[in-house]
């Protein structure tokens, strides 16, 4: 079977996971891969848990990533990182935004947000990278809306793709006024310690 690489982008409806997935897919196409991307629209976008699958290689068939087969998970939120853990491949990598968005049952006091999310991730993950995307977006890029691109910067560090290609695709996909801020966020996300 030809080698296919699987990436999950997970988060909460409204966090910009879709734009990030589109940028990633664009970079992969520029790099000459066959790419499939799968998302679900509709009801789940109303603040619900969202996932976008991106698969690339010489030839991709299924648009979905199987459980236990994701090489990379980019999590825009910690609880969502935990939720999608069963999709991670042995020795797979998780890049997680150090952000807790409380779901409705927690906001209402009916459920508890896992207090040790990062510890669980550390224990169960081959490689874990934690990034405070809001801090990068605000301090380095001066625009809180660049968090998703800051996360892509961190993801890019774990992928073998040309930085120039990333920059080109980011330019093409973000609003013209925010290009510089997004490029700064991307670079800072990639250097985050």
């Amino acid at each position: 079977m030809a080698e296919v690489t699987n990436v999950l982008l997970v988060g909460v409806g409204g966090q910009g996971t879709l734009l990030a997935a589109r940028i990633l897919s664009g970079v992969l196409q520029e790099a000459g891969y066959d790419v499939k991307m799968s998302e679900v629209h509709g009801m789940s976008q109303r603040g619900g848990s969202v996932v976008t699958f991106v698969r690339y290689g010489h030839k991709v068939h299924s648009p979905l990533v199987e459980k236990g087969s994701a090489h990379l998970i980019l999590a825009f939120e910690k609880l969502e990182a935990l939720r999608w853990l069963p999709y991670l491949k042995a020795n797979g990598t998780i890049v997680v935004n150090d952000l807790a968005l409380l779901p409705a049952p927690v906001l209402m006091g009916k459920a508890k947000y896992p207090p040790n999310a990062l510890d669980i991730l550390e224990e169960k993950t081959g490689k874990l990278m934690v990034i405070d995307a809001a801090q990068v977006a605000l301090k380095e890029a001066g625009n809180i809306r660049t968090q998703n691109v800051a996360l892509l910067g961190a993801l890019a560090r774990n992928m073998d793709l040309e930085i120039e290609t990333w920059e080109k695709v980011i330019r093409e996909n973000v609003p013209p006024k925010t290009v510089e801020a997004n490029l700064k966020a991307f670079a800072a996300g990639g250097k985050y310690q």
């Binding site: 109303r46 609880l79 935990l82 779901p103 409705a104 508890k112 669980i120």
Partner: peptide
């Protein structure tokens, strides 16, 4: 396996 709070749409 992990007892996670659901995140339903609202």
């Amino acid at each position: 396996e992990l007892d996670l709070p659901p995140r339903p749409p609202v």
